[in-house]
């Protein structure tokens, strides 16, 4: 059995990279390093999907998480950098955190393990080159309504993003800087309020690059 001797090594390497980078993402001091470690975790997960012959899921993971979500995380770190606070531990004991982590993990794993659909799955993997086609067939024949619902969700998300990030629409058309913005921007930014885009987050002022 060549497979039995070969697969665990590849899987162990991927698992080690994923787990170590996940621990680093939680424990490192520098937020940027944490973000980069999280990206490495996403890459490890993508490699795991590829290892399981889930080609499409693996590449979707790379496209969405490694490509887009990583950029979102980096921008979030960039935007909130000035609001650095001295972190105080929420709970005094790490045992409490461990207990909560086990509870969350258990509540996720238990339904998965006890699910009857797990036993219905074929033991061997599907033909790998046919997978994307199969997903496409199912998406177009059986899951058309969920696809449309998904379009609605994505549209709602887009509208929500625009509404949240561009909240001060009337202010933006006002050429004179409002006192609120002047107070906020202070000496950091000399751009007029017309260009300053405030959000509900801590970045109340902006400086155009």
């Amino acid at each position: 059995m060549r497979m039995l001797s070969d697969i665990p090594i590849a899987f162990l390497m991927i698992a080690a990279v994923t787990l170590v980078s996940a621990v680093c993402a939680m424990s490192l001091r520098n937020l940027v390093h944490c973000g980069l470690c999280l990206v490495l975790t996403f890459v490890g997960l993508a490699a795991t999907y590829l290892h399981l012959s889930a080609e499409f899921v693996g590449f979707a993971q790379v496209l969405v998480y490694v490509g887009a979500v990583a950029i979102l995380i980096v921008f979030t770190i960039l935007l909130t950098r000035n609001a650095e606070v001295t972190l105080s531990p929420v709970s005094q004991s790490s045992l409490v955190g461990l207990g909560i982590a086990i509870a969350v993990c258990g509540s996720l794993v238990l339904p998965l393990v006890t699910s009857p659909s797990l036993r219905r799955l074929p033991a061997q993997s599907l033909a790998p080159d046919a997978q994307v086609q199969r997903i496409g067939e199912k998406l177009m024949a059986q899951y058309v309504i969920p696809l449309e619902a998904l379009a609605l969700v994505l549209t709602a998300a887009m509208i929500g993003a625009v509404v949240i990030a561009m909240r001060d629409d009337p202010e933006r058309n006002d050429p004179s800087p409002s006192p609120q913005n002047q107070k906020d921007t202070g000496s950091v930014s000399n751009s007029p309020a017309g260009t300053a885009l405030n959000s509900s987050s801590s970045t109340s002022s902006s400086q155009r690059p």
Binding site: F75, L197, T203, Q207
Partner: peptide
């Protein structure tokens, strides 16, 4: 320096 929240909207 503080960055414009536009970056975040573009990322979203």
């Amino acid at each position: 320096a503080r960055l414009s929240v536009k970056f975040f909207l573009v990322a979203l």
